[in-house]
Amino acid sequence: MGAKEKTAVPLLQVSNLVKHFPIKRGYFQEKAYVKAVSNFSLKIYKGETYGLVGESGCGKSTTGRMILRLLAPTSGSVQYKGQDITHFSDEELRNARKEMQIIFQDPYSALNPRKQIGKAIAEPMSIFNLGEKRQHKQLVLDLLRKVGLQPEHYDRYPHEFSGGQRQRIVLARALAVNPAFIVCDEPVSALDVSIQSQILNLLQQLQEDFQLTYLFIAHDLSVVRHISDRVGVMYLGHLVEEAPTDALFSEPLHPYTRALLSAVPEPNPKKRKERIVLSSEVPSPIDLPKGCVFHPRCPQAIATCKEVVPVLQEMGTGHRVACHLVS
């Protein structure tokens, strides 16, 4: 997907976001911390789709939830439309969330099984006092059509729908408050491949119709390549590379990014590519390695990697990478 033209001011700016979860371990129940996200920063511009990728457990979903303040960050800041929402009061957050919504990975658990889907979609309208209540049903019916469902679905319950249909319902509910920014947290990973493509196309159509901005969280690089304008790569809570989609896939700079891309299946059976197999297991987020967090698995690691934490450096045309091997 080609990069969209950026405005001068980002819609969303995340600066040095950190999240540590306290735990107790060992026989004596000593206090320790799971370092889920470390000094994470990014900018997302109006109208674009920013893809965030990485292995399971790297902190992608935690980052998305902190951006919406569903989780309180340990430190750092989140600015939305120039306002720092990190320390908003409950009332201020309530108003901000009219513009910031989330689509979860499992649409079934995101819906009340005892509530008809028409009422579930209308509920945010009532919570935020949007329009007159007598108009809500018609608004819901319009949203159902927008996401590819039928008016007769209004009175049905979640268990009467397929996984793809339930994801459409969750999409309609997110759109009910007319948001500007949506966090899509693995929205298609639980769906069949044929249904995935339908939902991705729907997301792109809705983005155009409603002027939406997405943070698209996924581990499937093929999906991310299809829908994203820019991509950020996470590893153990750190942003290790960021670039426009075409640049990242044609010229990855970080060894971890190259390893991820080498694992993407090649659709052409006659074409072969080198598979980069990483050694050892992913380190524990409780005891992160000193220096670059990727160095225990990096086939190119040097002495500096084991001692010094690399910083994200600009390599030109929006391509940033945190690696001592790149200069």
Rank of each mutant, 00 (worst) to 15 (best):
A72T: 13
P73S: 00
T74C: 11
S75M: 09
S75V: 10
V78C: 12
Q79R: 15
K81Y: 14
D84H: 04
T86W: 12
H87A: 03
F88C: 08
S89C: 08
S89W: 07
E92F: 14
R94G: 04
A96H: 14
R97M: 00
R97H: 02
Q101L: 10
I102V: 14
I102F: 11
I103Y: 06
I103T: 02
I103H: 03
F104G: 04
D106Y: 01
Y108A: 05
Y108N: 02
S109M: 01
L111I: 05
L111V: 04
N112V: 02
N112E: 05
P113G: 04
P113V: 02
R114W: 00
Q116D: 07
Q116W: 05
I117S: 07
G118M: 10
A120N: 01
A122L: 09
A122I: 04
E123T: 04
P124E: 02
M125Y: 11
M125D: 12
F128I: 10
N129V: 06
L130Q: 10
G131D: 05
R134I: 13
Q135Y: 09
H136G: 13
H136V: 09
L139T: 15
V140H: 06
V140G: 02
L141Q: 07
D142E: 00
D142L: 09
L143M: 03
L144G: 05
K146I: 06
L149K: 04
Q150H: 15
E152D: 07
H153M: 07
H153R: 07
R156Y: 01
P158C: 03
E160M: 07
F161S: 03
S162A: 00
G163F: 11
G164L: 06
G164V: 00
R166G: 01
R166S: 02
R166Q: 06
Q167M: 00
R168Q: 02
L171T: 08
A172G: 03
A172P: 14
A172R: 07
R173H: 09
R173P: 04
R173Q: 11
A174W: 11
L175G: 05
A176M: 08
V177D: 01
N178H: 15
P179H: 10
P179A: 05
A180R: 10
A180W: 00
I182W: 15
I182V: 14
I182Y: 14
C184H: 03
D185E: 02
D185Q: 11
E186N: 10
E186Q: 08
E186C: 11
V188W: 00
S189K: 09
S189D: 02
A190L: 10
L191T: 12
D192E: 06
V193H: 13
S194T: 13
S194P: 14
I195C: 01
Q196F: 12
S197K: 15
L200T: 10
L202E: 12
L202V: 07
L202D: 07
Q204F: 04
Q204N: 14
Q205V: 08
L206A: 11
Q207R: 13
